[in-house]
């Protein structure tokens, strides 16, 4: 599975994408695992209300399952238009 980051999430984590090969079954479990990794992750994921998540390019809630997901994206609320 690939993790991808955009906007300030990408800047604060310091990379646009990285592979993930862990046990997380849901987005929430993945977030908990990332937060335990390093302070930069902990900081980015400290307030989930300021983040959005997409699993395989579909916006989902943080309790969404990761079954067979190929790509999980984390980013701030979008500012298009």
């Amino acid at each position: 599975m690939q993790l991808v980051y955009f906007a300030w999430v990408r800047e604060r984590i310091g990379t646009g994408s990285e592979p993930y090969d862990g046990p997380a079954q849901t987005v929430a479990e993945l977030v908990a695992e990332l937060r335990a990794r390093e302070p930069r992750y902990d900081l980015v994921f400290s307030d989930l209300t300021s983040l959005r998540v997409a699993v395989d390019q579909e916006l989902v809630d943080f309790d969404a399952p990761l079954s067979n997901a190929q790509e999980v994206a984390f980013f701030p609320p979008m500012t298009g238009g």
Partner: peptide
């Protein structure tokens, strides 16, 4: 469409 593009299309402005 504009309302959706503003906050649901994956763009970020800096």
């Amino acid at each position: 469409l504009m309302d959706y593009l503003k906050s649901r299309a994956p763009f970020w402005k800096k």
